[in-house]
């Protein structure tokens, strides 16, 4: 079993404090969902875990099986087992999707032990089928000219090919129609198992109709303010966030505000 421990995490972007002490522990075989209205710091948490260059951790720790994640470069974090499905993935002209994914897979292997082309193509084909992606997307340039939905599927495709220990999915459901939501959920559910843990960031409950989380956390004002089981997501769906705000005496849930 692997464990990702986030302790007292404080993060700034361009001098502005966004996260003000986040604590979450995720084990493999668990699926966690982080919910919350817009502007409460959810995506900042995702970016800070992966090491986005604009986000500065000012306090707190992230450890993966006791290893200091914050001391690692972005690529080292990835090779240590972390993955982030991004909300706005970059477009890279001239680099085909397939070449990129092979480079990513080979980055985890020793020189001379690269994944064979045949095996790679077979696996890519089958995963693309799961995600109902056109085969020609493998030869298109990375994210260039992809629709919003194609980009999301492509993020999940990468996750399925790379097979990380922990995946953070940053609003993977936004902009997806119901059919796309189903195939993306199928992809994520295929990953479930004792060697995989997942942190799903969303502000819609509907994704959780297809993926059942073990733990649900609510973020407000840059902190996790409430945690619970799957029933918490249902309650949020039914009643919204106001009852939590009332319970905690929060008037404005966004990060600019102090409790």
């Amino acid at each position: 079993m692997s464990t990702l421990v986030i302790k007292d995490l404080h993060v700034e972007i361009e001098g502005k404090q966004i996260l003000k002490g986040v604590n979450i522990t995720i084990n493999t075989s668990e699926i966690h969902a982080i919910m919350g209205p817009n502007g409460t710091g959810k995506s900042t948490l995702a970016s800070a875990i992966m090491g986005h260059p604009k986000y500065e951790v000012t306090q707190g720790t992230i450890e993966l099986d006791g290893e200091d994640v914050l001391a690692m470069e972005v690529d080292e974090r990835a090779r240590a087992g972390l993955f982030l499905a991004m909300q706005y993935p970059s477009e890279i002209s001239g680099v085909t999707n397939a070449d990129f994914m092979r480079s990513a897979m080979n980055a985890r292997r020793e020189e001379g032990n690269e994944v064979s082309l045949m095996k790679f193509i077979r696996e890519l084909d089958s995963k693309m089928e799961t995600l109902a992606m056109d085969q020609d997307m493998a030869q298109r340039y990375l994210n260039e000219g992809f629709s919003g939905g194609e980009k999301k599927r492509n993020e999940i495709l990468q996750m399925m090919m790379i097979k990380p220990t922990f995946a953070v999915l940053d609003e993977i459901d936004s902009g997806l129609d119901i059919d796309a939501l189903k195939v993306v959920s199928d992809g994520i559910n295929q990953m479930k198992g004792e060697n995989f843990g997942c942190l799903i960031i969303t502000h819609y409950q509907r994704l959780l109709n297809y993926i059942t989380p073990d733990h649900v956390h609510v973020m407000m004002q840059g902190r996790v303010v409430k945690s619970g089981g799957p029933e918490l997501a249902h309650k949020l769906e039914a009643e919204g966030y106001d009852w939590i705000k009332a319970e905690l005496g929060i008037e404005d849930e966004t990060v600019g505000q102090e409790a």
Partner: peptide, 9 residues
């Protein structure tokens, strides 16, 4: 950042 987040140096 995007490429490195997939483990590429």
């Amino acid at each position: 950042y995007y490429l490195m987040s997939r483990g590429i140096t």
